Simulated scan of single mutants.
Amino acid sequence: MTECSKLYDLVNPADPGAVFEEIKILVTRFRPGFDFSLFLKAFADVERLFRGDFPGYRASNTKYHDMEHTCSVVLAAVRLIFGAMAEGRSFSPRALNIGLLAPLFHDVGLIQTSDDTKGTGAKHTVGHEERSIQFMRDYFARGPLPPEDVDLCAKCIQCTMLAESPADIDFPDNEMRFMGRVTGTADIVAQMADRLYLEKLLMLYLEFQEARLPGFDTALELLEKTQDFYTNVAQKRLREGLGNIAPLMRPHFKLRWDVDRDLYAESIDQNIQYLDSVLGSCRGELLCSLSKLRRGGIVYEFLKTVDL
């Protein structure tokens, strides 16, 4: 790899197969012989769930919280774990399984059951973490993950709840607390480093509208509040509530790709800087702002669904 590499030059999170192969490479680097059978089956079943092939559930229909988002969070989580191992930490196979499974299941609560045919899964935004935990409990009700490990996965998923302080979550030891921090950190950095993050915020706005979340009357308001979210919520939570483990990305990229940089931090900074530029030049004009968010055809899809 070259020093000009960007985050999405390495692994495409929209390709679940590529993500799974990268996870295997990273884990087996320090844990040769690690048994992936439990995670492999769960990964395949979550894919089926999002696709609409899992009994009792509809296909995922949220445009922001989709399978790509889930894959990006799992990938970010294993990169953080790899970065910690590159700096000399060691984790038990049990902890590694929990560190992989929690981000995998963290957003499945946004998927509707077969008899839930009104609207989309976005209406479950408030409380979707508890729905995710319940799905996971039901999924592992007959094994092979022991109930106590399911409880630990649930605690890790709780670390993605912005209204809850990770410090208040009762982990039994530092190894499991680290996996909770990994899950919460990965959820934040993976989405904010997305190369289409700014465009995808329009899809997040549609989810918030269906969920009737207050404080986001227009898409422009969400774009404007993203600046404050990054500075006063995300950065503070990463540094304080989640133990400031995000910098472990750098040793991961150094050892895995010979790139001595934190590509997540760089991508997030680029996204926020461009957002500042857009909002500064457009001065409160939504159409002007949309005209500067051209990637992925997302604006076109957004405009088909809203009345401006």
Rank of each mutant, 00 (worst) to 15 (best):
D228A: 15
D228E: 15
D228H: 14
D228N: 12
D228S: 14
F229V: 04
Y230W: 14
T231W: 08
N232K: 10
N232C: 02
N232F: 12
V233P: 00
V233G: 00
A234P: 05
A234L: 03
Q235D: 03
Q235K: 14
K236Q: 11
K236T: 13
L238I: 11
R239Q: 12
R239D: 09
R239L: 08
E240S: 11
G241I: 00
L242V: 00
G243M: 01
G243L: 02
G243N: 08
G243R: 02
N244D: 15
I245D: 06
I245P: 09
I245H: 07
I245T: 07
A246V: 01
A246F: 03
P247V: 06
P247R: 08
R250P: 05
R250H: 06
R250K: 15
R250D: 03
R250E: 14
P251D: 09
P251E: 11
H252F: 10
F253E: 01
F253I: 05
F253H: 03
F253K: 03
F253C: 04
K254M: 01
K254I: 00
L255C: 01
L255I: 05
R256S: 12
D258Q: 14
D258S: 15
D258I: 04
V259I: 15
V259Q: 01
R261K: 11
L263D: 09
Y264Q: 04
Y264E: 07
A265T: 04
E266Q: 13
E266C: 04
S267Y: 06
S267C: 06
I268N: 02
I268V: 15
I268H: 05
I268G: 02
D269H: 07
D269A: 14
D269W: 02
D269R: 13
N271A: 07
Y274R: 11
Y274E: 07
L275K: 07
L275W: 10
D276Y: 03
S277I: 00
L279C: 10
L279I: 10
G280M: 09
G280E: 08
G280C: 07
C282W: 11
C282I: 07
C282D: 08
R283A: 07
R283D: 05
G284T: 00
G284W: 01
E285M: 01
E285D: 15
E285I: 02
L286F: 00
L287W: 00
L287A: 03
C288W: 08
C288N: 06
S289V: 13
L290R: 05
L290D: 00
L293S: 12
L293T: 10
L293N: 09
R294M: 06
R294Y: 05
R295L: 15
R295Y: 13
R295G: 13
G296K: 14
G296T: 13
G297T: 09
V299T: 13
Y300L: 13
E301L: 12
F302T: 07
F302P: 01
